[in-house]
Design a protein around this nucleic acid. Sequence first.
DNA 1: TATGAATGAGACTTCATTCAT
DNA 2: CATGAATGAAGTCTCATTCAT
Lengths: 175, 175, 175, 175
Amino acid sequence: MTDKKEKILRAALELFAEEGFKSTSTNKIAKKAGVSEGLIFRHFGNKDGLLQAIIQEGEEQAKVLFADIVMESDPKKLIEKYFGLTDKLLDNPEMANFWKLQYKIKWELEIYGEHKMEPLELALTNAFKKLGYKKPDLEARLLLINMDGMATRYYLQEGFNVKEMVEYFRNKYKQ
Amino acid sequence: MTDKKEKILRAALELFAEEGFKSTSTNKIAKKAGVSEGLIFRHFGNKDGLLQAIIQEGEEQAKVLFADIVMESDPKKLIEKYFGLTDKLLDNPEMANFWKLQYKIKWELEIYGEHKMEPLELALTNAFKKLGYKKPDLEARLLLINMDGMATRYYLQEGFNVKEMVEYFRNKYKQ
Amino acid sequence: MTDKKEKILRAALELFAEEGFKSTSTNKIAKKAGVSEGLIFRHFGNKDGLLQAIIQEGEEQAKVLFADIVMESDPKKLIEKYFGLTDKLLDNPEMANFWKLQYKIKWELEIYGEHKMEPLELALTNAFKKLGYKKPDLEARLLLINMDGMATRYYLQEGFNVKEMVEYFRNKYKQ
Amino acid sequence: MTDKKEKILRAALELFAEEGFKSTSTNKIAKKAGVSEGLIFRHFGNKDGLLQAIIQEGEEQAKVLFADIVMESDPKKLIEKYFGLTDKLLDNPEMANFWKLQYKIKWELEIYGEHKMEPLELALTNAFKKLGYKKPDLEARLLLINMDGMATRYYLQEGFNVKEMVEYFRNKYKQ
DNA sequence: TATGAATGAGACTTCATTCAT
DNA sequence: CATGAATGAAGTCTCATTCAT
């Protein structure tokens, strides 16, 4: 990957996450990346191609991130690790941007992309089963749904205290 | 309110909720409403004005809806009523559209609009306090966050079974 | 002439003189006049008709103004009266507006309307002839041309001291 | 400057001078220039930017034109050169258009732009001082005011004989 | 006489995309 | 690989004018 291609990807990620896909013009991206507008099309074909490239890159990072959780065999520890995700996401700004983008395009383009979360959901289901929950699948899904809610607040509600909220929620699973 | 003004509002609500604010052209709205494009601007000044008008209308409906919950003095019943919201929202398609729009523009325009939910949050906090929760404010917020998560799934994940999920979550507060 | 028709004329004169003919919308005129937009068209047919009506009204006032000068038989006094015009124009704001409009539309619509000034030019020519000027017609025209120049400055150059300038010019014809 | 950018400037100058700024649509300019409408905005940002570009170009030409007059140290010759301006302006059609535009926008947008004439006014003032005029500043201004008047006639009154008029006026300063 | 809702043509502008260099 | 001039379709918005009431 050339230097300029990288710069385009980074600029586009930031702008899409900040202002949305439709609202970000290729011109703006080019300017932010310090690159000619035509180059975007040379590298990615069209604006959609650029978006796809960003998503793909992010997914690979996500896989790595999830792998550690999914591989955990101890149910208590697995759930702990799941809650640990939040910290990891918040500490890495590039990651934070990527997840914001995920949600933005979820709503803008109406693609939920559940397959990405499937392994995580299965792992959690299994953990809850081991812990004797009656409806482990629903419990697992509840956790993920909650994460969507937290994300909504974190990204959109100014002054929202995520850490406190996550802590409170996490404690419910600690006994 | 004239007949055509109403038609514009309805058409715009549907289109904004379906395709987003930016992606919906005034031309499309006019065609769907069976009206000249200029009329939109005569009545609402500009596209933003149209959005504001839709939001305002919806908020008035929301107030009525929330009033019944907020006024409830019995904590158990209040929480029950809160969960009952879901059914009400899902049964009225106009309402469902309005809430979808709320979330869409939350993400598209990055306005959270927390003030709308404040009375509900306070009422829930008070209910949990009466029931002896140690951190009633966090518990209340958790419920609302959950609603954001449910909404995300309901509107975006095809085939998501809301009723089952809500039922499962609601049961946690029934004992 | 009805009250509302008058109001339209006055509002339009002011706006046309301030912002130009094309740049003034009938909507703005209606608002300033406190009248429905449709009424403008009922009374004047179309926007051009409104302009014509304003011009006609002003011309009648101009005729009265010029008559006193043109009828003067003493050449020195006639020239004095000509320079006295300036004071009269400056003291009456409605008149000032009308003349500003005259110049504005001269440039906007490229109609000079020389016929309006013809009697004045002839009278001045005759006066200069009596005074023994070799080219009285050119001298007369020079005076009028100068008036155009003064008007340009008076209406467009902020802080321009007309009275001083007119005084200086007038003195050239006093010996 | 690309070929097409030039063509836009030339077409716009002609149209603005002929029909005024507001009355000339960008569509018309594009067609006259044989160019897509969008290109205007790529090069000049917006319609105002286009106007500014035209004005700036013209001012640079004006500076050159004025320099020769302003640098003259002999007062008689300086005044002669000032009157010689007229011929120069009339002979170059591009220049004539530019000055017409100047007057048009003076009236349409109400910007006098006196700074442009200041050096000329100062030079004339100085010349008249040398020649022993009692109020050289007013005399200088009178000359410029006259020029505004001449321009008004030249551009707007069909059949107006400028050369004759200028000749007559100029002779007043020859003895 | 008077209103104001409604229209349709056309204004300015944005933008993804193409292409010669 | 890289640029940036150029395009054309589509977008938001303005405005003179019409018409039912």
